[in-house]
Design a protein around this nucleic acid. Structure first.
Length: 432
RNA sequence: GGCGACGUAGCCAAGUGGUAAGGCCGAGGUCUGCAAAACCUCUAUCCACCGGUUCGAAUCCGGUCGUCGCCUCCA
């Protein structure tokens, strides 16, 4: 059954076919390392981690996620703290790695840092100028959005519609020819880090880094480009304008965007004080409960974080985890012999006894094996796939082992994905 | 004003053409000296409302009402 993925660019589910058969090149916009990651970051990276793991069951996946280690906010934070921007970037990169590792997020195949690709960005900007898409002005370089016919396509906007909102905010950037033009290169200001360029010392604009890094590591055309819904405009719109103007072909075949996290029904924001960092959250709840909480919901829908919700997720995870552990034991036990029975813990023995004596099917299992449990619906039409079904529902997992008796391999495969998505456990090994 | 999303049990939520997953809460039960824990069972004749398409719709189309997001840095 073909995989179908919702493409933000076309606003439809489309059949997914990698450009190179068997291989998927995926780029995810990563963090700007100026502060600790919050729940919203956690959701994004858990979702993309899960998508990646699912794709890995079908394809060879190359997953690149950048780290923005030079940016206005980093510089500002360094000034506030009286330290260097490098120190800030280093500190929060380390914190990011620690947080994601605790959340059982697989490290990316490549984690390029913006500062390591300045050369590529300069080359890209030169190319854009040569092709007439960008202009140097007063030490800065801007992208002339009016030159790019498709500008606004991803976010469904027209330039005319956006002007009204942008007109009031041009004061700080007097070198722009058009209010919606965006900076590719920012001329150096006193006390700021800078790199040499044909336009004088300065630093790259935010959007150009992703274009340069994606190109350097994955080529001119990606299979999947993903990120938070808030990046659609202007970040991804600008990336498209930059990359496609130079490459002359679509930057990505499929664009995927994850939804936001609300707190008690309100938008998460620092001013409202409803802001959770990952590390604060993990002081109170298990990483797997957080994963469960995030993965319960459709990845494109907003999720509302509430105390009751995370507690429910914690309990749900506990139940599932017990089932997984039982099933893992089940799989590694040769047969339901008395000998095998003795090796189980009392709790597992009890479950074992129950499953091996209960008749099936009985009423509560009448719906098996319909999709249940976790369902990251980035893939429509994938009802029977491991991730859309994942595993039999928690309470029934143990009992359904009986049903699976004749096809342990199938169960093993599903459990492998299930456990690897939720825990760092190794898949149970089954020796026939 | 422009673009978009959502409305499913007391609560959270899955399900995008074939007849309602799962979790929380609650109820009953097994076990237990009692309790707790654990486990088992039960809990939507129906998916905001009104029309339409179809053999068949929570699922597609049109309309109504309601909630929310983006349009500024942001996962």
């Amino acid at each position: 059954m073909p995989l179908r993925i919702y493409n933000s660019l076309t606003r439809r589910k489309e059949e997914f076919a990698p450009l190179v058969p068997g291989e998927v090149r995926m780029y995810v916009c990563g963090v700007t390392v100026y502060d600790h990651c919050h729940l919203g970051h956690a959701r994004a990276y858990i979702v993309w981690d899960t998508v990646r793991r699912y794709l890995q069951t079908r394809y060879r996946v190359r997953y690149v996620q950048n780290i923005t280690d030079i940016d206005d906010k980093i510089i500002k934070r360094a000034q506030e703290r009286g330290t260097t921007w490098e120190a800030i970037a280093q500190e929060f990169t380390a914190a990011y790695n620690e947080d994601t590792q605790r959340l059982n997020i697989q490290p990316a195949d490549e984690s390029p840092k913006a500062t390591e690709y300045v050369e590529g960005m300069v080359a890209l900007i030169e190319d854009l100028i040569a092709r007439g898409y960008a202009y140097a002005s007063g030490g800065d370089v801007y992208y002339a959005v009016q030159r790019f016919p498709d500008y606004g396509r991803l976010s469904g906007r027209q330039l005319q519609d956006m002007q009204a909102g942008a007109s009031g905010r041009v004061d700080d950037e007097p070198h722009k020819r058009y209010p919606l033009d965006f900076a590719l290169w920012k001329g150096v200001k006193p006390g700021e880090p800078s790199w040499d360029s044909p336009w004088g010392p300065g630093r790259p604009g935010w959007h150009i880094e992703c274009s340069a890094m994606a190109r350097a590591l994955l080529g001119d055309r990606l299979d999947i480009h993903a990120g938070g819904a808030d990046l659609k405009f202007p970040h991804h719109e600008n990336e498209i304008a930059q990359s496609e103007a130079v490459a002359g072909q679509p930057l990505a075949n499929c664009w995927m965007h994850n939804g936001f996290v609300n707190i008690d029904g309100e938008k998460m924001s620092k001013s409202l004080g409803n802001f959770f960092t990952i590390r604060d959250l993990l002081k109170r709840f298990s990483p797997m409960a957080v994963r469960w909480f995030v993965l319960q919901a459709h990845y494109r829908q907003p999720i509302d974080f509430t105390e009751a919700g995370i507690e429910a997720a914690t309990k749900a995870w506990q139940t599932v985890n017990e089932g997984l552990q039982f099933a893992a034991t089940f799989l590694t036990t040769p047969s339901p012999s008395k000998e095998g029975e003795k090796r189980r813990s009392p709790g597992l023995r009890k479950l074992w006894t129950m499953t091996s004596t209960r008749p099936w099917p009985w009423r509560s299992c009448s719906t098996w094996p319909k999709p249940c449990g976790l369902r990251p619906t980035f893939c429509g039409g994938e009802r029977r796939s491991p991730l859309t079904k994942t595993w039999p529902p928690p309470r029934r997992l143990c009992t359904n082992c009986v049903v699976y008796w004749g096809s342990r391999r199938k169960l093993q495969q599903e459990l492998w994905l299930g456990t690897s998505v939720f825990t760092s456990q190794q898949p149970p090994t089954y020796k026939p």
